[in-house]
Write a protein that binds this DNA or RNA. Sequence first.
DNA 1: TTAGGTGCAAATTCTTTGCACCCTG
DNA 2: CAGGGTGCAAAGAATTTGCACCTAA
Lengths: 160, 160
Amino acid sequence: MNKVPRLAVERRLDRFRSAAAAAGVKLTHQRLEIFHEVASSLEHPDADAVCRAVRKRVPTVSIDTVYRTLWMLNDLGLVTTLGPRRERVRFDANLDQHHHYVCVHCGLARDFESAELAALRVPASVQELGRVITTQVEVRGVCSRCARTEGRISPRGKAR
Amino acid sequence: MNKVPRLAVERRLDRFRSAAAAAGVKLTHQRLEIFHEVASSLEHPDADAVCRAVRKRVPTVSIDTVYRTLWMLNDLGLVTTLGPRRERVRFDANLDQHHHYVCVHCGLARDFESAELAALRVPASVQELGRVITTQVEVRGVCSRCARTEGRISPRGKAR
DNA sequence: TTAGGTGCAAATTCTTTGCACCCTG
DNA sequence: CAGGGTGCAAAGAATTTGCACCTAA
């Protein structure tokens, strides 16, 4: 349950300040606290966890501000998401070892296999975290159909 | 937009039939159609897509039966999920190339880095699908804390 | 000052659950 | 025939949105 090194957090906050200035978004107390929480945590918290943590310092923050801020940070490229990217659960009947290519624009998903990937082993640091059950590669990109359709792609704009 | 080869679908259906018998669950018309839909699709459909497809053949299936069936198939180990595993969106402020270890039991997530993984390149078949933006490895397992707590782990039982 | 940001409450969306009837084994 | 399975309707949970007031720049 370590923390992100102080220096790294500072660097991230600085990056936020510049990005905010560049994008013309305001640096509110709430936003700084929300970003600080994500930037200093190794837990990859969800919105609710961020909200609860931030409330210790800003008791009035609301969950909707947390969501709005996190997605804004995502749009600014300052945070990414783990697991669901605003998608629903999807099911997969392919039980063979395989990996996924997912289009961040339309959600298209395809399996792929790779002997090279199948051969790789996870580093020792991972073994220390616990037992390993599966190892999957998730490649995110823009599928050729979307690339054709859109002049410019926003990895997560208004589109849902 | 190819299909899963007929033979592979048959094999999957057979596996379902045996697993169902072994687990003592009934092989209803709905379940067969639902599994057939997932087993023959390359799309990794979500519950709603499965429901719509199945309704073409069984107009009365309800979305809740689809959900119940899909999770049952998951519990039987006949399907897996892509992306969200019944989790919420989680945020990550680490912008360096890294990978994730996620405990399927408690949801603990940790970053890890690996020169070996960073060096690997995706197969050509993936390039054909579209442009690649990120490549991340997701290792799923049971963290040591959960392994200690639980005698036996169900990768997704009642626990939520 | 003033446009963008916040909190509140209400709306949405996705998913799950209770229950009475139905069908597989 | 018995007990699990299904559909319906309603509940829940997570996330988003409309709006009036607030505040950083």
